[in-house]
Amino acid sequence: MATTAVSAPLAAGQRRGRASSLRPHLPAYLMCAPTVLMFLVFMAFPIVFVLYTSLLNWDGITSIFDARWVGFDNYQTLVRDATWWTAVRNTVLYAVLKLAIELPIALLIALILGAKLRGATVFRTIGFLPVVTSIAVVSLAFTFFFSPLGGAFNTLLINLGAIDAPIAFLGERRYAFWTVTGVAVWHDLGINMVFFLAALQTVSRDLYEAADLDGATAWSKFREITLPAIRPMTAVIVMLSLAGSLKVFDHFAVMTGGGPGFSTTTMVLYMFRYTSFGGGGLAGTQTIPNIGYGSTVAIGLGLIVFAAVLLQQWIARWQEGR
């Protein structure tokens, strides 16, 4: 509002008047300058640049000025690239699975912790501990945990009599994706638990007391009071979780490197396949320097994240209107 009030006379004024009216704002401009500069160099220009390189056949090693212009060829390749769609399917499945597993468990634990039990703070701290640790480093330990060579998980299953011989949980197509997803759930559950806990604290006690007077059961109190009250926070949790999951990289890179085959590759991992940098850190990844195609994969990734955010906003609005 205030901006329009200031800029309206500006538009009417002459050039000289404009310059002199900017001068009092000089300190404000200077204080925004570092942020604006970083935005231009590391955000605005890269967006234009990635759009441009996605139209080139460029290996990223030779000069970009020698790169061949190929128009939308890379996009046509991407749409027909079965491995890209495997990466999309894996990433989307991962995102959906994480929500489906984490939300109910996190809510259940938050409900228990919110019931004013003695020692709740200790449990909350322990439950939150995995969240603050580096998932890349933790994944390293889990690589051994799930190893068929004396890994603890195989020992447990053999002792329980569930399996006869050790299973390579990270090396077999049937198990690798689920194992990595399980580790991610273990790592991230605590943050959703804490989010739900914060949401539960905003629910008015009076509502529960009124319901008690009416003789409402615990289940109906949960359905009619708790759930509607935490709905806004649930929308936030879904959005944050989705946005994070679609960009997943660390634990897949460390534990499987996208393998075996491409069975656990994600969108970001697939993008790395076409770059020459970073490959040294990934397990069994053969990189093909093709920055043009890698840029196209990056844009595909951006579009899918964008679509997910729009979809989620649309669903949230539709639910509110209902």
């Binding site: 955000m43 993008m271 890698g294 990056a298």
Partner: peptide, 21 residues
């Protein structure tokens, strides 16, 4: 508006161009 728009652009998407910058 620019700040708000960057919420929609995942940093991972800009890994490649940022490297060349």
């Amino acid at each position: 508006v620019c700040l708000l728009a960057t919420f929609l652009v995942p940093g991972e998407m800009l890994i490649i161009p940022t490297f060349y910058v």
